[in-house]
Design a binder for these strands. Structure first.
Lengths: 249, 249
DNA sequence: TAAATTTGTCTATTGATATAGACAATTATA
DNA sequence: TATAATTGTCTATATCAATAGACAAATTTA
């Protein structure tokens, strides 16, 4: 065998501090089950040796995760994993927020943060099959499950066809229910483009993240069963709390 | 309209240095067409004001992107955008490396970096429907397009059924061609789970990334048309060079 | 109870990060 | 050919990040 396996290695002088990198590693270790929930983490000295850094650096990483609510440190006893598992958000032909998280969460809902009417940008117009500058309604929403933010989305709709969808959304708290009021009883995911980046200040505030966090970004178009585009959306998911499970589209 | 749009804001004391955050912002701005290709970036003083940092901090960000091959700085003239567009890697029922990037690239191939026979870990065994500890062949590969690394993957195969696939892979440079030698003339993507994280040291080396970069991670299972699992894989894509386009699975 | 284990706090030192200002070098423009 | 605009280099300073060591405080274990 040639080659080497990805070691528990870190990068110095990277623009990302060591404590942040180690916090990421601990999160990852929890996510893949390396560190069990409600169990103690290895002691700080062991972690320091494992990652090849000073104990104080490990302490900075742990402090950040305690701040995030992932760990709890108890003097004399140890540091314990609190974190719930990463949610698995299904993306498929019929991608729906609420139904997708059933079974993994006891409660979930969408909050309408803001809405506005605006001229369609180039990409929105293309996605919806409208002329550039045509009036569209934008809904800014946040998805929450068991009290934690799990998504932050902007959705655009043809303003002529869906006038009043903002009010419907505020009332029902559901895209699916709101569309039903306009005679849309079914819709399909036509396309999804996926990328990732660092969370910006808006993401940090909206998703209750710590600086340095990563967000998954999806840009999607939903259509009626006969192919008419009805919704263009861009969603952000906190990578530390959500993974995307791609099923049959 | 309530709410605010994502501003050009940055986070201090975040564990991610300002120059890295600004480099990310510039990359993003290029990706969404804010800064056109082959056109000059705004001058350093303008960027510094725009992002609310010192000119030298902007210079650090630009230096990193010059190092990455995204920008070219010319004294007295300006700093220019070189970057090729982000590749759009399709993921669907028949996900194939080479065909997926046709049209976007002139050349692409897979390099076999290493191979080994090993006992199946828990997740590999589950994915392939084998007993834990059963012998599997692991292929470590890198996908390259137009001379740039675009993916880094580990694939696992049942060692009994696919003995010699490592040699076939080394010879053909294609998973599809290698599987064909074992009578597999078609295979389908059964499941894909997607996440994102910071690149670790191995990713940086393998994908020629700068520290602080983000990688998209997919964990997938391929099956024969009648549902037999044949390949379990974990792939990493550099988020700054690749986006994933989900098509009909 | 005593010893061992583990987290918490403090001081000190070094290097990386970020700001600030001045000026040189190169190129485009009036 | 000046002048302006822009990137490149240098010095200096303050703060953050990381290492190092010592010891306190709390808890568990022998």
């Amino acid at each position: 065998m040639v080659g080497r396996l990805a070691a528990d290695s870190i990068e110095r002088r990277s623009g990302v501090s060591l404590w942040r990198q180690i916090a990421d590693k601990i999160l990852h270790a929890i996510a893949i089950g390396d560190f069990a929930e409600n169990a103690p983490l290895p002691p700080e000295v062991a972690l320091a040796e494992r990652y090849g850094v000073n104990r104080h650096t490990v302490r900075s990483a742990i402090a950040a995760l305690v701040q995030e609510g992932v760990l709890r440190a108890e003097q004399g006893r140890g540091t314990f994993v609190l974190s719930r598992k990463r949610l698995s958000y299904p993306i498929g032909a019929r991608t729906r927020f609420s139904t997708g998280l059933q079974g993994q969460t006891t409660e979930r809902h969408i909050v309408l943060l803001a809405s506005s009417v605006e001229p369609a940008s180039q990409r929105v117009a293309e996605g919806l099959g409208l002329a550039r500058g045509a009036e569209v309604i934008r809904l800014e929403t946040r998805g929450e499950a068991d009290g934690r933010p799990v998504s932050r989305a902007a959705g655009w709709f043809d303003a002529r066809r869906f006038a009043g969808i903002d009010a419907a959304m505020a009332e029902t708290g559901s895209i699916t229910a709101s569309l039903a009021r306009f005679g849309i009883d079914d819709y399909l995911r036509q396309s999804t483009v996926l990328s990732a980046r660092h969370a910006d200040a808006a993401d940090l505030a909206d998703l209750d993240l710590q600086p340095g966090a990563i967000v998954l970004v999806t840009v999607a178009v939903n259509v009626t069963p006969d192919g008419q585009p009805i919704q263009f959306s861009e969603s952000r998911f906190p990578a530390e709390r959500v993974e995307l499970k791609l099923s049959a589209l």
